[in-house]
């Protein structure tokens, strides 16, 4: 089986790409897709680092991560549909009315 470091680096790269997407895109759905990319990066990292400790805890944690991702996706999509119904746009800027 393979080493750990290269997987951690790939995971970090995925995470950072997701972050870039989240910060720079304006479409709400794409922003959420970017967070999902970050999840993928975390997943790779968790499993890789978990292998360092010789148990399956990393994978178990990864499974719970999937649950969280599913929860997040469900709620996020519900919210997006709601917001889209209200304003007819997916632009994140349309929802900055809560500023101080």
């Amino acid at each position: 089986m393979a080493g750990v470091t290269e997987y951690v680096i790939v995971g970090a790269a995925l995470f950072a790409l997701g972050l870039v997407g989240f910060l720079s895109r304006r479409n709400l759905i794409v922003m959420f897709l970017s967070t999902e990319i970050m999840f993928q990066g975390v997943l790779v990292n968790v499993v890789a680092v978990g292998r360092l400790h010789g148990g399956l805890e990393g994978q178990a944690f990864g499974l719970f991560l999937l649950v969280i991702a599913a929860v997040e996706a469900g709620l996020a999509l519900g919210l997006i549909v709601l917001l889209f119904r209200r304003r007819g746009t997916l632009d994140a800027d349309a929802w900055s009315a809560m500023r101080g």
Binding site: M1, V4, T5, A16, L19, V20, L23, L52
Partner: peptide, 22 residues
Amino acid sequence: AVFAGFVLMAAIAGRAGELPLA
């Protein structure tokens, strides 16, 4: 955005170099 993201990436990767090889 790109700057923040890639600095973070570099930080993690730099740290990852210290991991023991599996």
